[in-house]
Design a protein around this nucleic acid. Structure first.
Length: 260
DNA sequence: AACGATGTTCAGAG
DNA sequence: ACTCTGAACATCGT
């Protein structure tokens, strides 16, 4: 279920398992998950190893000993799985790497919205794909600069990867809930104080989620995520949550708590 | 068994 | 040139 905190965890997982092993096999079960020809991936990976990783939002960059950078995006349903070759290949492990130590890295992707790409540098890729600073590294003034003038709903702004990267649907909902801001409020109508609150809650939600390794059930009670489904009730008001569409995504909020 | 889902991308409009 | 919107993408679990 990858948003920024999950991908952060995936990065730690990959760092502690997959680095510095020679890659001996690559199997891509569905080539729609790769954005370059299979040949290019084989040339980059086979005989080489993963050296280090960098995360920008939900994007994970792997520096390969070939000098290239592997770009991994987990989509809606991706997760890494490092398993020994005595075990069965995971059902949804659509891309699979074999290391010379007898272990494999399976890129599990149930809904096939995840993908791999190849690039030269992280910076180049960021520019090309208009990815702004990772939400965790963004300063308040950078947030103001990127967000305050936007004429669209604040929720769309939070999820726009060129404003800041890593915020997805549930984080945006939780941030606005905790900030007591209506998701449809236009960004350019928000006061400096409101923007500051949104920024602070964004940092808070991300840090809590990372510290708890994205185990939602362990999050504090005031997190929206516990009730972010049909016919549930606001922790503060006890009233039933509203469910609407914002920017094409399902959005939950508490009408009396997050007033327009 | 139709619908919704944590994701990005792209065309077209403003 | 930039910003915004909405549909498209794949397929599984409910």
């Amino acid at each position: 279920m990858p948003e920024l905190p999950e991908v952060h965890g995936y990065q730690q997982y990959i760092n502690s398992t997959c680095l510095n092993h020679k890659i001996v096999t690559l199997d891509v079960r569905d080539e729609r998950l790769i954005k370059k020809p299979i040949k290019a991936f084989k040339e980059m990976l086979l005989g080489n190893s993963w050296v280090s990783t960098e995360r920008v939002g939900k994007y994970l960059f792997v520096h390969v000993s070939s000098g290239d950078v592997l770009v991994i995006h987990f989509g809606m349903t991706g997760r890494p799985n490092y398993y020994h070759d005595s075990a069965e290949r995971p059902r949804f492990g659509h891309i699979d790497i074999g290391f010379d130590n007898g272990y494999h890295f399976a890129f599990e992707n149930k809904r096939k919205f995840g993908w791999w790409d190849i690039t030269d540098t992280v910076e180049g890729y960021r520019k090309e794909h208009k990815l702004n600073i990772d939400a965790r590294d963004l300063t308040f003034s950078q947030f103001i600069e990127a967000a305050a003038h936007r004429k669209t709903a604040i929720k769309n702004v939070l999820m726009n990867q060129s404003v800041t990267t890593g915020v997805g649907n549930w984080i945006a909902d939780d941030v606005l809930y905790q900030a007591k801001i209506h998701p449809l409020k236009k960004a350019n109508t928000l006061s400096k104080t409101e923007l500051q609150t949104i920024y602070d809650k964004l940092q808070h939600v991300i840090e809590v989620a990372i510290n708890l390794e994205a185990r939602y059930v362990d999050f504090p009670d005031y997190f929206l995520i516990h009730v972010r489904k049909g016919r549930e009730y606001c922790y503060h008001t006890g009233n039933e949550l509203e469910k609407i569409k914002v920017g094409g995504r399902t959005t939950y909020f508490s009408a009396e708590w997050q007033e327009m």
